[in-house]
Simulated assay, not measured.
Amino acid sequence: MGTSSGTRIVLGHWLRSPFGPFSDVMLERADGDRLLLAPTQETANFVSGTYTFDTVRVLPVDVSVAASTWTVAAGSFDLRFSTGRRGLLGFLLAAVPGALARRPAWIALLDRPARVLLPGVRTRGSAGGGRREWYGARDLRPIAALSAVFEGEDLGAMARVEPPVRFGFGSVPQKPTVTRVTTTVELGPE
Rank of each mutant, 00 (worst) to 15 (best):
A74C: 02
R112W: 10
A157E: 14
L11G: 10
T177Y: 12
P142D: 00
M1V: 11
D111K: 02
E153C: 06
P173E: 13
G6A: 01
R102Y: 04
E28M: 14
G130Q: 08
D62R: 09
I143A: 08
L118A: 06
T177A: 15
D62N: 09
T43I: 07
R86E: 11
M1K: 07
R29Q: 11
D24V: 13
P113N: 03
V121K: 00
G98H: 04
S23A: 15
R86D: 06
L155F: 01
P18K: 10
A74D: 06
V56Y: 05
R57V: 09
V185T: 03
L109F: 11
T123M: 14
V58W: 04
N45I: 09
G84N: 01
L11V: 15
E28N: 07
R57A: 11
A44K: 03
Q174P: 05
V10R: 12
M158C: 00
A159C: 08
L140Y: 00
D54H: 08
M26R: 14
R122K: 04
R160Q: 13
L140Q: 00
R80D: 06
G156V: 03
F19T: 12
T83G: 07
T182N: 13
L117A: 07
A144F: 05
G168K: 10
L15D: 14
G20Y: 05
L89Q: 02
G87L: 08
R138E: 13
L59K: 03
G128H: 11
F81T: 05
R122P: 00
A95S: 01
V58L: 08
D154P: 00
T179Q: 11
F91G: 05
R102M: 07
T182Y: 15
G128Y: 00
A127C: 01
S17V: 05
T3G: 02
W134E: 07
G98K: 02
T43Y: 01
L88A: 07
P97Y: 10
V63D: 03
A114P: 07
S64I: 05
T184S: 13
F81D: 04
F22P: 01
T52K: 12
F19M: 15
L109T: 07
V58P: 04
G84I: 03
V72N: 07
V185Y: 04
R180Q: 15
I143V: 14
T83M: 04
V72Y: 02
P18G: 07
R29W: 00
A144V: 10
P163E: 11
A101Y: 03
A114R: 01
S48I: 00
R8F: 09
W106G: 08
N45W: 11
R132S: 08
S48H: 02
I9L: 08
Q41C: 00
D111S: 05
M1G: 15
A157Q: 08
G188A: 10
E28T: 09
Y51S: 12
R29D: 10
R80L: 05
F91W: 14
N45D: 15
Q174T: 10
G49S: 05
F167D: 04
Q174A: 11
G170W: 12
L35T: 15
